[in-house]
Amino acid sequence: MKIKDTLENYTFILPAVTIFSVFYIIPFIWVFQLGLFDWDGISFTKVFVGLQNFKEVFLQDRNWWQSMWNASYITLIAITLQNILAFMLAWACDREIKMKNFYRVIFFIPPVLSEVVVGMVWRFIINDIDGANIINRTLTGMGFANLAHNWLSDPNTALTTVAIVHCWKGFGWGFLIFLAGLQTIPRELYEAARVDGASAWQSFKKITLPLMIPVMVLVAILTVLGTMQVFVLIVSLVGGEFAGHTSVPVLRILASMRGSSRFGYACAQGITFGMVLVAISFIQYRFSKKGQ
C-alpha cells in the first residue's frame, strides 16, 4: 500500500519535474558546460579550457564587475524608492478614497508598456536636441537653471536617470502585489484595534507591517531579479554602455556573444550572474525567515 502511495505521488509530480528539468536544469548544465570551452558560437569544434573563462570573469574582467556594480546601484534604488512608493500608493488605494479604481488602472499602465517605448518616451522627455527637454525647461522655469544639463550624457547622472526611469516603469508591479497583499488582511483586525484605542500609525505598525512582511520579501526578490537583468531600457535610453557608465551584466554578456564572438565566455558570465542572483535571493529569503 505504501509503495503504491509513493508511486502515485511520484506520478503526480512527474510532469512538473520533467518540464522543470527540460527547460531549466538541463539548459543550466548545458550552459555551464559551454562555459568550460573556448567557442565562437559558429564552429562545430570547441576548445576545452577548463575553468579559465570563470577565472577571467572573477579575476580579470573589470568591466564585468563594473557592470555588476551598476546593476546593483539601479537595484538598490528600485528596492528602496520604487518599492516604498509602490507600498505607499497601494496602502492609499486600499483605503476608502475617491476614484481608487481609476488610480489602480493608471498606476498599472507603465509596467504593461514595452521597455523600448518607455525608453524612447523618456529620452524624448529628457533630451534637448532630439527631445522636448521638458525636465530642463521645468527646472529653468522654477528658477533652477543651474541644475539643467544633459542628464543622459553626463557620467554623473546617467545611471541615476536610468534607475529613476526604471522605477517609474516598474513600480506598478509592486503596487499590484502590495495591494493584493493588503486586501488579504482581515478588516476585523483593524476594527478591533480601533476599539482598543489604537491610532492609525499603531495599526499600521502593529498589524499592516508584520502581516505584509512575506509580501514585501516576495516583491523585494522579484525586484532584485527583474532589476539586475535590466538592459532594454538602457539601450533605448542611452544607446548602450556609455563608456561603461551604464553598463549592466546582460549588456556585457551580449557584448561577449555578439561583439567578441566568445560564446563560451558569455556562458561563464551568464552562470556567474545566475549564481549571484540565486545567492542574493537566498539571503533575502533567509533574512525574512529570521525577521518572521
Binding site: 529620452r123 534637448d128 536636441i129 532630439d130 543622459l152 550624457s153 535610453l237 542611452v238 556609455f242
Partner: peptide, 16 residues
C-alpha cells in the same frame, strides 16, 4: 560635436 553625442543612437542622429 552635438550635445549628448556619446549616448546618441544612429536613428536619433538621422532624425536630428
Amino acid at each position: 560635436l552635438a550635445k549628448g553625442l556619446v549616448t546618441m543612437i544612429n536613428k536619433s542622429a538621422e532624425q536630428i
